[in-house]
């Protein structure tokens, strides 16, 4: 892997939601083969960061590159696990249908999933130990099982960079362990995984690197270096009250 082309590079990225800036001037270079945790208070823009990286939200400025290429050219190398609550679990599909969707980007829109696609989907289901539930309708799953299905769908994408939005929220202890083992396995295969995480104590345990985020990058580095009370204080301490006030003023003026 060319060291000058890191898996993920973000340059001066600013993102606004309904004209209201949520992320300011994000600069980030994530090296390969790392498990990165993104932590920060509510409203810090963690989900926004992921969505902006995936082109789901327009950037006000800056750019994102994967392996030195724009997202448009590298879509097949980027995988995504959205928040579990973002979909309707009463949707009429079963577990293997959902995992198969991870393969949809691999072939043209008009092509049916191939036998190989189905085999890969089954393999991924097996990796998260959900193969016995392959034919279940998704509303009959527990929270942890739903999360595993989402994970299997992302595995089926066979990407090099993964974004995961709170994969540990609302799952049972067994699932949490299973997921973290899987993430370590992926990391050891040289993949880069960026995980939005809510729980500070486990964040220290789980991740190689941490990104402390609060509307801008407070700190980014190896977990031991970044996980200090001073930096955490700065992330969670609400020192940015003036910044968010200014944001409100700007918004009000634009609406006038």
């Amino acid at each position: 892997m060319n060291p000058s082309n890191p898996p993920l590079e973000i340059h001066d990225m600013t993102v606004a939601y309904h004209k209201r800036p949520v992320l300011y001037g994000i600069d980030l270079v994530v090296p390969g083969g790392k498990l990165v945790g993104v932590v920060g208070p509510n409203g810090a823009g963690k989900t926004t960061l992921i969505k902006a990286c995936l082109g789901l939200l327009p950037l006000s400025s800056g750019w994102v590159k994967y392996f030195g290429q724009a997202y448009r050219e590298s879509k097949s190398r980027v995988g995504y696990v959205p928040q579990r609550e973002s979909v309707d679990w009463d949707f009429p599909v079963n577990v293997s249908d959902v995992v198969l969707m991870g393969r949809y980007g691999k072939t043209s829109l008009f092509m049916r999933p191939t036998r190989e696609d189905r085999a890969i989907a089954r393999e991924c289901l097996d990796k998260v130990k959900m193969l016995p539930y392959a034919d279940r309708q998704i509303s009959n799953l527990s929270g942890g099982q739903q999360q595993r299905v989402f994970l299997a769908r992302a595995l089926a994408q066979e990407s090099d960079v993964y974004f995961m939005d709170e994969p540990f929220s609302g799952v049972d202890a067994a699932t949490e362990t299973a997921i973290i083992e899987l993430l370590h396995e992926l990391r050891d295969q040289g993949k880069t995984i960026i995980v939005v995480h809510h729980d500070l104590p486990t964040a220290k345990e789980y991740f190689d690197m941490l990104l402390l985020l609060n509307m801008r990058v407070v700190a980014f580095g190896d977990t031991e270096e970044v996980f200090t009370s001073e930096l955490l204080q700065r992330t969670y301490g609400g020192r940015l009250t003036i910044l968010s006030e200014v944001v409100d003023v700007v918004k009000q003026q634009e609406e006038r």
């Binding site: 969505k51 082109g55 879509k75 959205p82 249908d97 980007g105 829109l109």
Partner: peptide, 23 residues
Amino acid sequence: SLCYKGLLAASFDQDFAVSLGLP
């Protein structure tokens, strides 16, 4: 029937479908 795959993915999880590069 031609676009069934895309319609299904986009109806179930729009963001994910976008991230796959589906139109």
